[in-house]
Write a protein that binds this DNA or RNA. Structure first.
Length: 425
RNA sequence: GGAGGGGUGGCAGAGCGGUUGAAUGCACUGGUCUUGAAAACCAGCGAGGGUGAAAGCCCUCCGAGAGUUCGAAUCUCUCCUCCUCCGCCA
């Protein structure tokens, strides 16, 4: 959520910044609602003051043994008037608040203009895509051919489309990736590993920005409890700081978390239907930081570099792009995507998305720190990114490590996690 | 699942329906004292919002929501949550 004060005083500026995200801020409606709000709120509070004063004087008069019937009589009209005004005010503030919850975050100045994915700007490339002396096969074909590999049919039988079963060595490789990523981030990058609930309440999703706008993307439980399956560990992990005032010397907070992620993928019918690029359930190691506002730019750079380290150690060619305004998500101020090379598709595909949110999530969550300079609680900045998406990393390893006979070379850093084996056959 | 007891400021912990946004202690900040520190003493110290150029003034908040009342931290109801005991269970 944006600062209601700023949106009021600088509506024009915010509106033009939001145009970069292809969002049209309804300045007129906002101004109208707010001027109504202002009148009604001042009125209501004045009336409340009146009531408080008189009630107090009743107390005093009673204590002094005086007759209170006259004051009591003067109170008669106030109550109903106050009730009406309060009701109106509540409605108005709800309308205003509901609207503000649907306004996206302002993109950072460094975010390029653009409408969609095709306008994202490449910033860097690492590694050289390997050329194969044979026709490179895609991961689904490779995985299904392995003796202990991928089984999409079984998953469809058990559940439905967009799920996968991994068996034997392939399941182990998947697990090895998780271990390797967590070890790297905790031992080398200074993150604290956390293990969190995979079911969350609506408040948490409101805090990180998935609700109220993106309910359709989520799996919601039926039954007594209104819980949702997490679409990313970002939700439970970032919400660790919800309603907290963090001590300045505990910052920055850096968490690494492995979790499954559940996405309904509504509206993506027909996209990436083959294989395990786009699943209803996948696993991810997520990096989350909560930092002082002045540190958030450098924290995004650091976190992105932390994710890149994984790709580099796995020797997977990738590129880094900055998302243009139109492609930057609702809550984000700035996003870098890391895209890994997939030989079968002859292009780079997203494997990590690293974003800074400025105080957008923090304001929704009331996540604060105590600034020693002012002594006051102030909003934190939050940053998160995948480090990395495990399923897609597996895909990349299968495709980039394939040999002509269909066996797969296991990256050196993973061999220790795989009982020393070098080849998946 | 059953029975009982709690949820109050950063923490601990008082609080009769009425000048209580809340005693007290700890922590924290500033000051006095000291060569310095500690101790002692003095003072300050919750959050959100409105209005205002500012000082200030006002509103709201004692787990959440509803209710009773002129007036609710205090009374009633619902829900959430924590603890103890019993049952069940990986």
């Amino acid at each position: 959520m944006l600062d209601p004060k700023t949106i009021r005083s600088d509506a024009g500026l915010i509106a033009s910044a939001l145009r970069k995200k292809k969002f049209e801020l309804d300045v007129t409606r906002l101004a109208e609602l707010d001027s109504q709000r202002k009148i009604l709120q001042t009125d209501t509070e004045a009336l409340q003051n009146e009531r408080n004063q008189r009630s107090k004087s009743i107390g005093k008069a009673k204590a002094a043994g005086e007759d209170v019937s006259e004051i009591l009589q003067s109170m008669e009209g106030i109550k109903s008037e106050l009730d009406t005004k309060k009701e109106h005010l509540n409605l108005l503030q709800k309308e205003l608040g509901d609207y503000l919850l649907t306004v996206p975050n302002v993109p950072s100045e460094s975010v390029p203009e653009g409408a969609d994915e095709s306008d994202n700007k490449e910033i860097a490339r690492w590694g050289t895509p390997k050329t194969f002396g044979f026709a490179a096969r895609d991961h689904a074909e490779l995985g299904e051919a392995l003796e202990q590999g991928l089984d999409f049919e079984a998953a469809t039988k058990i559940t439905g489309s967009r799920f996968a079963v991994m068996t034997g060595r392939t399941a182990q490789l998947h697990r090895a990736l998780i271990q390797f990523m967590l070890d790297t981030h905790t031992l080398k990058h200074g993150y604290t590993e956390v293990n969190v609930p995979y079911l969350v309440n609506a408040e948490s999703l409101m805090g990180t920005g998935q609700l109220p706008k993106f309910e359709a993307d989520l799996f919601k439980l039926r039954g007594d409890q209104e819980y949702y399956l997490i679409p990313t560990a970002e939700v439970p992990v970032t919400n660790l700081v919800r309603d907290q005032i963090i001590d300045a010397d505990l910052l920055p907070l850096k968490f690494a978390c492995h979790s499954p992620c559940f996405r309904s993928e509504a509206g993506s019918y027909g996209k990436d239907t083959k294989g395990m690029i786009r699943q209803h359930q996948f696993e991810k190691v997520e990096l989350v930081q909560a930092v002082r506002p002045q540190d958030s730019d450098s924290a995004l750079e650091e976190l992105t570099a932390n994710a890149e380290t994984i790709l580099q150690l796995l020797e997977l060619p990738y590129r880094k792009v900055i998302l243009c305004g139109g492609d930057t998500s609702f809550s984000a101020a700035k996003t870098y995507d890391l895209e890994v090379w997939l030989p079968s598709q002859d292009c780079y595909r997203e494997i990590s998305s690293c974003s800074s949110f400025a105080d957008f999530q923090a304001r929704r969550m009331q996540a604060r720190w105590r600034n020693p300079e002012t002594g006051k609680p102030e909003l934190l900045h939050t940053i998160n990114g995948s480090g990395l998406a495990v399923g897609r990393t597996l895909v990349a390893i299968l495709e980039n490590g394939q040999l002509e006979d269909g066996s797969i070379q296991i990256p050196k850093v993973l061999q220790a996690y795989m009982n020393g084996i070098e080849l998946l056959v």
